[in-house]
Every structure is written in structure tokens, then in C-alpha cells.
């Protein structure tokens, strides 16, 4: 029993949840009043869009790529959501579908020319930002009513952000970790040659994963404007970093298709809580991003320790 509890595999799986729990306990200790429906709702409000962006990034990382454009992309979908989708729903839906298709096409391009995804997505981040600026030159617009309604739902007992995040994590877990095609998709990251030899199209897996990332990017943008009710081209610039950090905090490996959807949403929640934690400690907001970097490094260091023990065994 003790062997099982101290096995590297178990420790690695438990690390994301443990980091989240420690952070949450620290916050409850500092401000006992946050231990309430209202407190949790307020602290975790922005978890939903961040978790969705993190899932999007996770899909890309599964196939050994990295998306440096997810932040501006979420910003673009937020701008489309707050303008076209609200005014002329049909045009808005078409535009958002176009965004998802564009992502799938990027996946195809990266596979076809064997391109480094960071350069491609870094270039695309300018394209997304440019389009967003064209659509919405100054901050403004209004979120469609139904989006605002959905994001403002009051669930009984457990606050909505937690319910929504858990649902997102579970749905993606079922699709990616429990379905047979999900195994193929992860295999395309773990051992592309084997998947290719087995007769699966690697082009298709890349397109599916990028398309899925685009779809979750759209959901992230929409849920974000549901909370802010207005949009801005730069509204989600930081999401690129959040999303990468969320995946890594959640136990995702950088290469080899080893990812965890549940871990990723826990990672996103941990990141969101860091902000509140620092505020309660009265640490200046200057150190906000620094602390996120620090937490990332600590978690990675712990994981390196666990992995080293695995090497010894």
C-alpha cells in the first residue's frame, strides 16, 4: 500500500491536485471568509475561459506542437462574439466556424510542410490580432444575451465556475482518454510512425487536434465575453501563457502525447487562484506573472525529482 502511494506514477498523477489543494487551503487560512459559495464564485470566476483555452493548448501539445497564438485567437473570437454574433447571429456563427476551419488548416499546413509550430503560430498571432483590430478597433461591443445568461447561471450548492470546469474536464477526458479514436490521437503524438504504419492518417489527426483547439478557443472567447460583457482585441493576450502553464501544471508532458484533461483544468484553476492568493498576501500585482512563473518552475522541479526517482527504481 505504502509502495503504491509513493510510486512515481501515483505521485505524478496526484501532483496537480495536491498543488491546487495546498493553494486553496492557504487561501482559506488567510481569508476564512472565502470559504463560501460567494467567495469561491468570485475567486474562480475566470476559470472557465482559462480552462477552455488550456484545453485548446492541450490538444496542440498532444500532437507535439505548441500554440503561441491561442491568446490573440481567443481575443479575436471574443471580438467576433461581441459584435457580429450579437448583431447578425448568422454571420457570427459563420465567422466562428471559419476560425475553427482556419485552425484545422494550420494543422494541415504544419503537417504538410513539416513546419515548426512555434514560428507558424507566432506569425498567426499577428494575423488574429490584426483581424480583431479590424473588427473592433476600440474596446466595446456587447455579448449576446444568451452567453451572458449562461455564464451567470447560479447552480445550487456548488458555484457555476466549478461545475462548468469539472464538466469540461470530464467531457474532454471521455473523448480523448477513453475513446478509441482518442487513443489514436494521443498516439499520433507519442509515436507518429507507429500510428502511420497502422494505417491512420497523420494529416487527419493533426487537423482534428488543431480543429478541436480552434473550437475550444472559440468557446473560451465566448465564455470570456459572457463575464466581461464587452470585448477588446487585446482582452486575452495573456491567455497564451496561461494556457501553456495550465497544461504543464496539470501534468501534461511537453512531448509524446502524454497529457491529462482533468489535470489541465485543475492547472487552470490553480493559475486563477494564484492571483487571489497573492492579493490576500498583499503582494503587489507586479509580482503576479512572476509568481506564476515561480509556481511553474516549482511544479516542474518536483516532477523532475519524481522522474529521477523513477529512473533509480
Amino acid at each position: 500500500m505504502v509502495d503504491r502511494l509513493t510510486s512515481p506514477r501515483f505521485l505524478r498523477a496526484v501532483l496537480p491536485a495536491a498543488s491546487f489543494a495546498i493553494l486553496l487551503i492557504a487561501i482559506f487560512y488567510l481569508k476564512p471568509r472565502t470559504m463560501s459559495y460567494f467567495g469561491l464564485n468570485l475567486m474562480l470566476q475566470y476559470t472557465v475561459p482559462i480552462a477552455l483555452a488550456t484545453i485548446a493548448q492541450m490538444f496542440i501539445i498532444t500532437v507535439n506542437d505548441l500554440d503561441l497564438s491561442i491568446g490573440p485567437f481567443v481575443g479575436l473570437t471574443a471580438c467576433i462574439g461581441a459584435t457580429w454574433l450579437a448583431d447578425t447571429p448568422l454571420l457570427g456563427i459563420l465567422a466562428l466556424a471559419g476560425c475553427v476551419a482556419a485552425y484545422a488548416a494550420l494543422g494541415a499546413l504544419i503537417h504538410w510542410r513539416n513546419l515548426p509550430s512555434i514560428v507558424v503560430t507566432l506569425g498567426m498571432s499577428f494575423v488574429w490580432l490584426g483581424i480583431a483590430v479590424l473588427i473592433l478597433p476600440t474596446p466595446g461591443g456587447t455579448a449576446p444575451g444568451w452567453v451572458k445568461w449562461l455564464m451567470g447561471v447560479k447552480t445550487p450548492v456548488v458555484p457555476f465556475p466549478i461545475v462548468a470546469t469539472v464538466v469540461i474536464g470530464l467531457v474532454v477526458h471521455l473523448l480523448l482518454m477513453r475513446s478509441s479514436y482518442g487513443a489514436v490521437l494521443r498516439g499520433a503524438g507519442g509515436n507518429p510512425r507507429a500510428i502511420g504504419r497502422a494505417g491512420w492518417s497523420l494529416l487527419k489527426t493533426k487537423m482534428v487536434m488543431f480543429g478541436a483547439a480552434g473550437f475550444f478557443g472559440v468557446l473560451s472567447g465566448l465564455s470570456l465575453i459572457g463575464l466581461t460583457s464587452a470585448a477588446d482585441a487585446h482582452i486575452a493576450d495573456r491567455y497564451t501563457l496561461y494556457a501553456i502553464a495550465g497544461v504543464i501544471l496539470g501534468g501534461g508532458e511537453f512531448v509524446g502525447g502524454r497529457v491529462s484533461p482533468i489535470g489541465a483544468v485543475i492547472g487552470a484553476m490553480t493559475l486563477t487562484l494564484t492571483g487571489s492568493f497573492l492579493t490576500f498576501l498583499k503582494i503587489s500585482p507586479d509580482w503576479q506573472i512572476g509568481a506564476q512563473g515561480g509556481i511553474l518552475i516549482i511544479v516542474l522541479a518536483l516532477r523532475a525529482l519524481i522522474n529521477r526517482r523513477e529512473g533509480l527504481v
Binding site: L109, R113, L115, G123, S125, F126, G130, L134
Partner: peptide, 22 residues
């Protein structure tokens, strides 16, 4: 306009890497 400028900058980088990426 600034928007078009950003789009073109991004597209040129993607185009160059696509041509050179072979």
C-alpha cells in the same frame, strides 16, 4: 491601417517559413 499591417506581417512570416520549411 494597423489591423492590415499586423495581418500582412504575420502572413509574410508564415509564408516565408512555409516556403523555406521543406
Amino acid at each position: 491601417s494597423a489591423g492590415i499591417r499586423l495581418i500582412l506581417t504575420g502572413l509574410i512570416i508564415v509564408a516565408v517559413i512555409t516556403i523555406a520549411g521543406g
